[in-house]
Design a protein around this nucleic acid. Structure first.
Length: 488
RNA sequence: GGUCUCAUGGCCGAGCGGUUAGGCACCGGUCUGCAAAACCGUCUACAGCAGUUCGAAUCUGCUUGAGACCUCCA
């Protein structure tokens, strides 16, 4: 696997280009991904990011890296909304639902856990929460103050962007240029305590109606939105680690500010490689709460999205997402989901066929090259769509072997079985179809199909078709293949 | 308004200077009592206009269209 590890190339948002991946410590990877803010149930778009980073995590593990994967849960923090007001979205949700803040967080954390299980996400190594790390956040803020890149005003602490820009590059990640000109065009709120429009809160003085309040050297208050990730990534992965990921929409200001906080306190960018997953679209527009065009991951499972005429399994949704690259937009449409459903079925059928295949003396095609193509695809910035295309090439060959038009040696067959399973289940994270959920039906169906088989043998088509139609009415489809009759 | 990204066959979606992406649909075939399913094969597109090049979906410029970010967001 070391040879494959050395081939891995990652697109680094920091530089805007692909570069060979070299971990800080050979064979080890520290990866931090910004998790959800649990003031509501994560929607399908949120899930896409987590599914994509799950793919990345899975492939890194498969390559034999020791990966420490930290994904936080945001359960506190004040953010600045579009009108310039500092708001506590969790507190707001708590008030709306007449619950305490942590009740809100816990309620949605349970749902998020369930979604992770359903969509087959591997649990991260650590899932820290902001409220468990207030002390660490305070310590980093103190360090930034000591270094002169922050100032205190009336019980709140703000990051001093102008001071920071004298020594560091604010905008290194997002490409944003911050200048005085913009300061003039964007009016500071009259009661704003910030000295400069681009300054952001590290600590915010408590409001009388805040639901959660913590003590600090600057009085009672709440941590700012961006400092929690700096505190938690530093605590668990160190001042500098390998990969920092998150959704594209977090690039600015969240990740830019994380870099500023790390540079302002420790003097270095926290991550060597910044990775950004792209958004999920609905009718060409980003799925988001504010647009109202979102739906919940569970709605697609029970067919209640209102957008599609039928339901889809989590496996189909995941496979659908794997057919687009993580850095591309992806359009969620019914036709595309139907296509994914059929394609997945074709792929899993081929894996089943693989078990029935018989080997010959030699192989009629280059199995090693085929397997290598799986690695080549994923080593190129986790190009899952190419991997899927190559898996379909394998599918075609498997079916041809089954038809006797191609052949494979015993060694190659073992290799192919192993790698197909590895890439489909371990890397893409697809789940083997749960069999036996209707176990009581199995002996009944065996009996019914046996009777129908006898009728067919006797060319009693009337009885045969009567059984088939009757089962169809009960929602059971009978298929007569050359190897016997199957149902589903 | 500022910054940036993208425009690929009926649909979804790879590609980053020369080779078949792939899936779904369509069509043809195999199988089959019929049907369905399954399998095989076919289908050869790159928004428009100009340019660079022996050669461009791929590079450059312009035009048109779409989207994202610019202190809510995964």
């Amino acid at each position: 696997m070391k040879a494959q590890q050395d081939q891995l190339v990652i697109y680094n948002s920091l530089k805007g280009e692909k570069e060979p991946f070299v971990p800080l410590v050979e064979g080890n990877i520290g990866m931090y991904v910004c998790g959800p803010t649990l003031y509501s149930e994560p929607h399908m778009g949120n899930m896409r990011t987590f599914i994509n980073f799950d793919l990345i995590y899975r492939y890194l593990l498969h390559l034999g890296f020791r990966v420490k994967y930290v994904r936080n849960i945001t359960d506190a923090g004040h953010i600045t909304n579009s009108t310039g007001q500092e708001v506590d979205s969790i507190g707001a949700a708590a008030k709306a639902e007449q619950l305490q803040s942590l009740e809100i967080v816990y309620k949605y954390a349970v749902k998020f856990q369930e979604l992770q299980r359903i969509y087959n996400l591997l649990p991260p190594s650590i899932e820290p929460t902001a409220t468990q790390h207030i002390q660490e956040q305070i310590e980093i803020i103190e360090q930034i103050l000591t270094n002169g890149y922050a100032y205190e005003v009336n019980g709140s602490v703000y990051f001093d962007t102008r001071k920071y820009m004298q020594d560091f590059h604010y905008g290194i990640l997002s490409g944003r240029k911050v200048d005085e000109l913009e300061n003039e065009t964007r009016q500071l709120n009259s009661q704003d305590e910030k000295r400069f429009f681009a300054d952001f809160a590290l600590w915010k003085k408590a409001n009388p109606d805040d639901m959660q309040i913590w003590r600090s050297p600057w009085g009672n208050g709440n941590p700012g939105w961006h400092i929690e990730c700096t505190a938690m990534s530093t605590k668990y992965l160190g001042k500098q680690f390998d990969i920092h990921g998150g959704g594209m929409d977090l690039k600015f200001p969240h990740h830019e500010d994380e870099i500023a906080q790390s540079c302002g306190s420790f003097g270095c960018n926290p991550a060597r490689y910044w990775m950004h997953a792209n958004m999920l679209n609905v009718n060409g527009q980003k799925m988001s709460k504010s647009f109202g065009n979102y739906f919940l991951p569970k709605q697609i499972l029970d067919g209640t999205t209102g957008l599609f005429q039928k339901s889809y399994t989590a496996n189909v949704v995941r496979f659908f997402m794997m057919q687009a690259h993580y850095r591309s937009n992806l359009d969620f449409t019914q036709d595309a989901l139907n296509a994914a459903e059929k394609g997945l079925s074709k792929l899993t059928d081929a894996i089943a066929t693989l078990d029935r295949l018989e080997s010959k003396e030699a192989s009629s095609f280059d199995v090693n090259a085929l397997v290598q193509s799986f690695y080549t695809a994923m080593n190129d910035d986790f190009n899952a769509p190419i991997l899927v295309a190559n898996l379909f090439e394998a599918t075609r060959l498997i079916n041809l072997i089954n038809d006797g038009k191609e052949y494979i040696s015993a060694t190659d067959l073992d290799l192919l079985k192993d790698k197909m399973a590895v890439f489909v289940y371990d890397v893409l994270g697809l789940q083997k179809e749960a069999a036996g959920s209707e176990s009581r039906l199995v002996p009944v169906m065996d009996l019914v199909l046996d009777l129908r088989g006898q009728a067919r043998k006797n060319k009693d088509w009337a009885t045969s078709d009567q059984i088939r139609d009757g089962l169809a009415n009960a929602g059971i489809v009978v298929k007569d293949g050359k190897d016997g009759t199957t149902w589903s």
